[in-house]
Structures are given as C-alpha cells and as structure tokens.
Simulated scan of single mutants.
Amino acid sequence: MEFTAHAIQRCSQRGIRVRQVEWLVTFGCHTWNRGARVCFFDRARFQRLLFSLEPTERQLAEKTRGSYAVVSDGRVVTVGHREAAFCASKPGSHRSRHGQIHVA
C-alpha cells in the first residue's frame, strides 16, 4: 500500500500505525467523498477484524476503532480520528455538522 507524504506526516502526528491503516482498508467499510474512498469501522466490521487477529494485536486494534483513512487512486491520502461531525456527515444522516436536523 502506497502512502502520500501528507499521509505519512498525519500518521506520525496522530499516532496511527501503517498496520492500522491496512486493517481499515482491508476490513473496514467505506463511503465516497469528493471522489476518494473514506474507510472506517462500523460495529460489525470491527468485530470481524477482532476475530481474525491474534490476542496480542487486539489492543492495537481497539485504538483503530475510531480512526479513518482516505484512499484515492490506490494511495492513502490522509488518516485521522473520527469525531461526532464525521458521523453526522455520513450519507443518510439527518443531522448536520452543527447538530441541526435536516428536514427533507
């Protein structure tokens, strides 16, 4: 898996290891944002990851639960930790980033 210089810098700043990014891309679900794939864990996919890991890796996996990776053209562009605003901006959500309810 190839990382951009920006992604390497963000991994370092945010304490996210390459192994964690690999888990996100391999086991996580994804959504699309501005032509890039955003990989993250929902409950079911995270459980699937835990069952596939050795007990020694599960502690690191727990730290991955709230992370995301943005992949474009087969390269990891950036990584980060999910916040409430991230969840509210997912497709199908009825709340905006500021907690207001959208009425269709």
Rank of each mutant, 00 (worst) to 15 (best):
E2R: 08
H6W: 01
A7D: 01
A7N: 01
I8A: 07
I8K: 14
I8M: 08
C11S: 07
S12G: 03
Q13S: 10
R14Y: 03
R14M: 04
R14W: 06
G15Q: 06
I16Y: 05
R17W: 02
R17P: 00
V18K: 04
W23K: 04
W23L: 06
T26L: 08
T26Q: 10
F27K: 05
G28M: 10
H30R: 13
T31R: 09
T31A: 05
N33G: 00
N33H: 03
R34A: 10
G35D: 02
G35F: 04
G35Y: 04
A36S: 15
R37A: 08
F40A: 06
F41R: 04
F41Y: 10
A44M: 14
A44F: 14
A44P: 13
R45E: 13
R45L: 07
Q47D: 10
Q47N: 11
R48S: 12
L49N: 03
L50Y: 05
L50I: 14
L50Q: 11
F51P: 00
S52G: 08
S52F: 09
L53S: 04
L53R: 01
E54N: 11
E54K: 10
P55T: 03
E57F: 07
R58K: 15
E62T: 10
K63Y: 05
T64W: 03
R65W: 15
R65A: 15
G66H: 14
G66T: 10
S67C: 15
S67G: 08
Y68L: 12
V70A: 08
V70G: 06
S72D: 06
G74P: 00
G74I: 00
G74C: 00
R75G: 00
R75M: 07
V76M: 02
V77P: 01
H81T: 12
R82M: 15
A84K: 15
A85D: 11
C87D: 15
A88R: 15
S89C: 08
K90V: 07
G92K: 11
G92P: 13
R97L: 15
H98M: 06
H98Q: 11
G99L: 11
Q100F: 08
I101S: 06
V103L: 10
A104D: 04
A104E: 02
